[in-house]
């Protein structure tokens, strides 16, 4: 029964990775921008939540609710004033700008928050678990996974049933023609990045409640997010959830074999998928 347990834990862990990935996927899907600072932004959001917790004494969930609009504004401004200026046919400028942002954010957080490990205290929730017959699962991992499903469901609804989602898809297809419809692609990009930062805040909430975090862990989160996106297939949000689950399962299986292999096993799983299915498991028909 141990392997069933490992499998379930892995899938639930995948929920966290899907949360990391959803914002990345959203932004890439709409503007073909890969944000190398994505992981550091997750850590940044976690610190923001922590500051709210410590300042007002709220619980992490309420604090995240307060941090989310701030992160939206931050993402909106980042896109509006920085990233929009470097978006274009050449992929180099946006990559280098976000890489610079990654280094700047990491070190800025190091100065402000020190290198100490932090955690968002979630009280009894941290150790609560639910008995599901053959396996017992932690409430927190279950909550994370449920949140990932909810986030992806909500994103899909936004994409396919709202005017905003219509604008997202139109701008992604053809920004020039979208502008002939009265849509300003740069404003749409700014909203998309703002929305991505709201998802980042949700990801940060669970990251911070489930494990310790410090300013240096951003890049590794970026890599997990990226792997989930590629495994799932670019542009497929549900695929991203599957991708996250695959990374999660690979990691728990690896860790079961040898604790030192956990991270490595996740990376290897990614490479295997890339080898067998270069376009991911659920590629979009039109690119």
């Amino acid at each position: 029964m141990i392997w069933l347990d490992v499998l379930v834990q892995g899938i639930l862990l995948g929920g966290l990775y899907a949360l990391f990935a959803a914002g990345l996927s959203l932004v890439f899907g709409i503007m073909r921008l890969v944000n190398l600072a994505h992981g550091d932004l997750i850590v940044f959001a976690a610190f923001l939540i922590l500051v709210v917790v410590q300042t007002f004494g709220f619980n992490p969930f309420l604090s995240a609710l307060i941090a989310a609009p701030a992160m939206f504004a931050f993402g909106w401004a980042l896109q509006r004033f920085v990233l929009n200026r470097v978006l274009g046919k050449d992929i180099l400028p946006p990559l280098l700008v976000t890489f610079g942002l990654s280094v700047a954010l990491q070190n800025g957080m190091l100065e402000v928050f020190s290198a100490d490990s932090q955690r968002l205290a979630a009280g009894p929730l941290e150790s609560a678990s639910i008995d599901l017959g053959p396996v017992t699962v932690g409430t927190m991992p279950l909550l994370t996974f449920a949140s990932a499903v909810l986030v992806i469901f909500a994103l899909n609804r936004i994409f396919y049933t709202t005017a905003l989602g219509r604008a997202f898809r139109a701008v992604s297809d053809d920004p020039t023609t979208a502008s002939l419809m009265g849509i300003n692609p740069k404003s749409v990009f700014a909203i998309a990045t703002g929305l991505a930062m709201v998802i980042v805040t949700i990801a940060a909430l669970y990251l911070g409640m489930r494990s310790n975090f410090d300013p240096s862990i951003g890049p590794a989160r970026l890599l997990y997010a990226f792997q989930a996106v590629i495994i799932g297939g670019l542009g497929s949000l549900w695929g991203t959830l599957a991708g996250g689950a695959i990374i999660g399962v690979a990691q728990t299986v690896g860790a079961q074999l040898n604790p030192e292999w956990q991270i490595l096993a996740g990376h290897i799983a990614f490479l295997v998928v890339l080898l067998l299915r270069p376009r991911g498991l659920f590629p979009r028909a039109v690119d």
Binding site: V82, L96, V97, F99, G100, L101, S102, V103, A104, L105, Q106, N107, G108, E111
Partner: peptide
Amino acid sequence: LLALGLLAI
């Protein structure tokens, strides 16, 4: 390092 990152941006 923070300044270097901002300088690159």
